[in-house]
Design a protein around this nucleic acid. Structure first.
Lengths: 261, 261
DNA sequence: GCAGTGCATTACTCCGACAAATAGACTTGT
DNA sequence: ACAAGTCTATTTGTCGGAGTAATGCACTGC
């Protein structure tokens, strides 16, 4: 006989709506993972405002129908990402946006969960326009034959499938991932991966909004061509052009979305 | 009467060596904070190797002389930074470096805690050489009069005190912080702040190694001058020059250090 | 008016028990 | 002999409760 005094089964049923079901395995996504996502998204999207103080641990844990320990672990993960800070007497408060680790993959995911914020999209593209050409340029002068071959295969796969299929998106992801590897810089690799994750979300958003108006293969092909030729300047230029087009598409999707909520 | 069965006081005394004393207040730096730092540094510096599996929660908690709950909170914070992953039966293992969030301020701090890794320093400078000129350029065309004034004051303070004083380093920090603010891009702001933190650690390292061979004021002055003139290209060029000099100094300090451990 | 003190509130730490997932050994059927 | 399903031991996950430590704030005394 379990001692389950207050009804763990009933509790599990009540919190079933948080999206635990559709979770990748082994990523700590059970009760705590769901709570982290729930709170993280509410904070990043502004439902819980900056400088706002969360109710006490006991109260919040009860409201979410979880134990205090689990709630604390969730809060500590948010604290590790710079979203909140806890101290005795004052409680747990949402930190100023400048303290947020905006380059954390989870934070970006939460930021793009709903309707993307136009300012953030703009800032992100501005950053991409600085970083990604540099990455492509470095990849052009450092790539190994194996990486070149992998990028060719990924591009071929993109040509075969469309971006509307899961395989197509996978190939796009692979293309950029190999390029990141090829630039042989761990820091840029980390940054590029975060950005890539964010881009994937905006791509998904563009798809939700209304189809793909543009074939991404030509842009990617010209980037690859420059990398094959070990031409740093050409690679940078090609990547800038790719970004210009992507930004135009995103802006279109965003304004379409704005005009018809 | 407290029930303190196994001697909390004795435990606190035993773990006194972890550096809890010299901690900033209110940042969660008590027992858990010390453990996070301890484990984080051991992982990032390679004392605990990639793909290595940590001993079980109970065993590790006992070894560190802390409760299982506190240890779990610490591990969850490391997991939030992409350093480790836990799953039942398998245990907690160190993730591959590509999963690490190298742009997290804490991770960078741990990376630069001991002797800086030459590869990381190189990668970081390569990244700075891409990002920081862009930041300076944007700041040049977006700065407000207030920000201009603040940067002037910070530079003046740098001129008055040296970088060997706490006030001087503070002024340097302030200078770069205001510039980040002036570029009016939240994502670049986050990135710049992380980089700035890392730079502060290398600066401290340069100081430990053997004094400052160069006066940083002229470089900063020319950056500020370009920003005052709203000249984007000049600001980018000035920042590139500043970075070139800083990199040279760091390389010198690093090779000095290598030749005399 | 101001410095020092006490109190109430909040997070922090600890403990022990049970639940759930799962890698690996084992069993079974063909 | 081999494949597929089953069982078990191990590890993290979750829970509840109790005492500890820090600290903002009101109060007191000068």
């Amino acid at each position: 006989m379990t001692r389950d005094g207050s009804g763990n089964a009933a509790r599990a049923a009540r919190r079933g709506g948080l999206g635990i079901s559709d979770a990748p395995r082994g990523s700590g996504r059970r009760v705590r993972g769901a709570v982290v996502d729930y709170l993280g998204e509410r904070i990043v999207t502004g439902k819980i405002g900056v400088a706002e103080t969360l109710p006490g641990e006991i109260e919040t844990a009860e409201r979410l129908d979880i134990s205090r320990g689990t709630y604390r672990e969730a809060v500590k993960m948010l604290a590790a990402k710079g979203l909140v800070e806890s101290r005795p007497k004052t409680g747990t408060r949402v930190l100023d946006r400048v303290r947020w680790n905006l380059l954390d993959p989870d934070v970006l995911r939460w930021a793009f969960a709903g309707r993307p914020d136009a300012c953030l999209v703009r800032d992100l593209f501005e950053m991409r326009m600085v970083v990604e050409p540099a990455i492509a340029g470095l990849a052009a002068i450092r790539r190994t034959p194996d990486q070149l071959e992998a990028m060719r295969k990924a591009l071929e796969q993109m040509r075969a499938k469309s971006l509307e299929t899961e395989e197509g998106r996978m190939a796009d992801r692979e293309f950029h991932e190999v390029m990141l590897d090829a630039c042989a810089n761990e820091v840029m690799n980390t940054l590029g991966a975060s950005i890539g994750a964010a881009v994937a979300y905006t791509t998904l958003f563009k798809q939700r909004t209304g189809g793909f108006p543009r074939d991404p293969v030509p842009d990617h092909a010209s980037v690859l061509e420059a990398i094959e030729a070990s031409d740093q300047n050409a690679a940078e230029a090609a990547m800038r052009e790719l970004l210009r087009l992507a930004q135009a598409d995103t802006q279109d999707a965003l304004s379409d979305y704005a005009s018809s909520p």
